[in-house]
Amino acid sequence: MTIEGPGAVSEDVNAASPTLDAPRLASARPGFAEVVAKELDAVYRYLVYLTGDRSAAEDLAAETFEKAFRSWRRFDPRRGSPRTWLCRIARSVAVDWFRAETRRRKREETYAREVSPIEELGDGLPPELEEALRELSPAEREVVALRVLLELDGPSAARVLGISQTACSTRLSRALRRLEEGMSDVRE
């Protein structure tokens, strides 16, 4: 059974989709297709910012939703929003990717210096901001994505990152300051 296209995201679609309806535990919780339609962009953005690689983010987003689909039965809406839950899964998937990527780079460094392809993080983002964004560490980009793009609140973002709210705020302030500095340098 497959999920129909994005336009079919409604209660009717969920009702017609037994495989997706099956994990639904409570009437209050949304259907999985609904969540996919609503949160796909958010998860993708988060992964683009985290990895700095659009094609990787695409693969990781697919993997994230696959994992989410498998464990959809365990999702408890009372413990957090679907977005927070998906971001946590996405982060776990991305961490695995980072590990694999690090190993791969180490292997390749033995033979040749890798030149990573430059991809845009945002759609039509000003070049100076794009550059400043690239200068940030993945951890800093991650917090920017969660707090700014995905508009998660402090506690939710901290939960996704596995750090305290204070640490999350500090990291966000630092990242935004660095972005601002990058922009200022260009302006000057």
């Binding site: 497959t2 994005p6 796909l40 695409e58 945002g122 759609d123 983002l125």
Partner: peptide, 19 residues
């Protein structure tokens, strides 16, 4: 950042919905 946030390509959407 918000204005120029990346959007998931349609191929990804189809891929996910076809899970």
């Amino acid at each position: 950042l918000r204005a120029h946030a990346p959007h998931a390509p349609e191929s990804l959407r189809e891929r996910v919905l076809a899970l």
